[in-house]
Design a protein around this nucleic acid. Structure first.
Lengths: 327, 327
DNA sequence: GTGAAAGCGCTAACAG
DNA sequence: CTGTTAGCGCTTTCAC
């Protein structure tokens, strides 16, 4: 024991967790003993005895999507700065996996958990309640739980307004898979409802769901262009990767953007600014979301401050791939 | 206690960790009691008592680079399938941060740790030794530690050979920052040494280090094109993001690829296949690296099988942005 | 300010 | 196959 340095284990413990409460001289002796012995405290013992693990869990759909890995990067970095570690898990948009993963993390005695979206299995919520783990929802807004996210309905509405202002009248949308994904669903709703409000409800078949990836964006454009005479002159893509795929396919098909077709995405990935013409897209600041989430969780588990509902701003970025309606 | 279901806590423990060793009837009773009570085992207590946490740590430079987030995705998914959790940390290419983070994870009693690259601070290695934590190096190959990675020297050599075969004689390279990054450094060495072996040592100034990002690739091309008359006809970029930035800048500058300039990257990101012409690049299979690492760690901490040195294949993908030397 | 003692909830021999 | 008995290494009252 490091208390071969003349003090009791209780004092060592205090020297480590609340240095302010031990006399300066004692503190020094403890610290040099620690250095000499190469002593490393055991987190599992600390957790067991104190009930706090200084670890937070995060469950995201996948890290293959840059928006999530960026947010996790921000979350982890901020947590680490405050002595917290990150237990990370993914569920690949599978509700069962999410339940399993949340259960696994809850056993790990995480001090708090961040989830993506507001739609989760009943069981997920009940595990959280029973274990009393603080949960923070991200990306979406919720009235029932602490959350920090975007108004996804507004994102869709914003895209619609932009396109309407440019004079378009025939619209298409390439959405991500909406099943078990409230973000994707709300973007569709925001887009469609806004068009409807202008008496321009999109035709059946004009809303096309595609799996995440460039291939999805390509397939989406093919579908939307094959509906006959009433081809859309403007397409809203639920995220930038679909938008990029759509753009690549347009190039393959010889469709000029934005002359023949306007395309707008969402996320504002770094590459959106690099391609020519720059992709019109909606900025989200996902990195910041991760950092804010970290601070909210830190405050929650340290001071007991329950986070409220934080809405992050969204805004239109660039206007390269959208332009006036043809003719 | 769940042993209100008629058995001792020891039996509950066995029912959970080695179900094969308890009688079927007893097992059932325990399980229904568990379900009824909503009992959730406490991982910190299990860890403290057993000395195993069923948690592995991973330390990567950053998640903002898709190659790392892909590998982590593979690692985490595979670990979860076997009941293991992932503690994730990043260091942003900062040696001090890495030490801090490795220390933090070692306190968390991780059963094993995965690191990126073979170059680390002495202190990092000594923490690992003292704590006896199993460490697996990834991305690079090592003769001293268990590892699973790529031959980064060969990657540079492969790029050089490809360009030499196309008849190029004046070369440039846009490398990632080589300080504290053995992968980047070895790629440079492989490239340069191979050229030297053919009597075609690149001029001073032809090897240009740039920070990761599209901007780095753009700046790199500007630098290489401003060296005067002896402009390179072929450029090897240390990774695809730099290569893409280089390509974007070439487009801005009116340099035709591959007619005026050949560009080759490394990583084979999904977008490499989508842009036109497809980016010539070297495939790495980082997802697989993550999965293999998971299996290696699982075997190591469960059966004690010490992983050896695994070299993952690399190969040339596509030939869109490279072509014969001009003239 | 500091020490002594009582666990935190589980696993791991050891009997039986 | 199952119960009993010790701790795992720390935090935390409670006295001093």
């Amino acid at each position: 024991m490091a208390k071969l340095a003349g003090v009791s284990m209780a004092t060592v413990s205090r020297a480590l967790s609340s240095p302010a409460v031990v006399r300066e001289k004692t503190l020094e002796r403890v610290q040099s003993a620690i250095a000499a012995l190469g002593y490393v405290p055991d987190a599992s013992a600390r957790t067991l005895a104190s009930g706090r693990s200084r670890t937070v869990g995060a469950v995201v759909p996948t890290l293959d999507n840059a928006i999530f890995s960026n947010a996790i990067q921000g979350l982890q970095t901020t947590l680490a700065e405050h002595g917290y570690q990150l237990l990370l898990a993914t569920h690949n948009y599978n509700l069962k996996s999410e339940i399993a993963v949340v259960r696994a993390l809850s056993e790990r005695a995480v001090d708090a958990l961040v989830l993506v979206g507001s739609e989760h299995a009943h069981e997920t919520f009940s595990i959280l309640e029973k274990s009393g783990i603080h949960a923070l929802l991200t990306w979406s807004l919720s009235n029932d739980y602490p959350c920090i996210g975007f108004d996804n309905f507004e994102i869709g509405a914003m895209a619609a307004r932009h396109l309407l202002e440019l004079g378009h009248r025939r619209f298409g949308m390439i959405s991500g898979i909406t099943r078990h994904n409230d973000r994707a669903r709300q973007r569709v709703e925001g887009f469609v409802n806004t068009l409807k409000a202008h008496g321009l409800a999109p035709q059946p078949g004009a809303i096309c769901e595609q799996p995440y990836g460039f291939a999805g964006g390509r397939a989406g454009l093919q579908r939307l262009m094959s509906v006959g005479a009433e081809r859309p002159t403007a397409i809203f893509c639920g995220n930038d990767v679909l938008a990029l795929g759509c753009l690549f396919e347009a190039a393959s098909l010889g469709i000029r953007v934005p002359d023949d077709l306007s395309v707008i995405g969402c996320d504002d990935l770094p590459i959106a600014a690099e391609i020519a013409p720059g992709l019109t897209t909606i900025s989200l600041h996902t990195r910041q979301l991760g950092e804010l989430a970290a601070h909210a969780l830190l405050d929650w588990s340290q001071d007991g401050t329950i986070p409220g509902r934080t809405e992050l701003p969204v805004s239109l970025a660039r206007r390269g791939t959208t332009g006036p309606a043809p003719q």
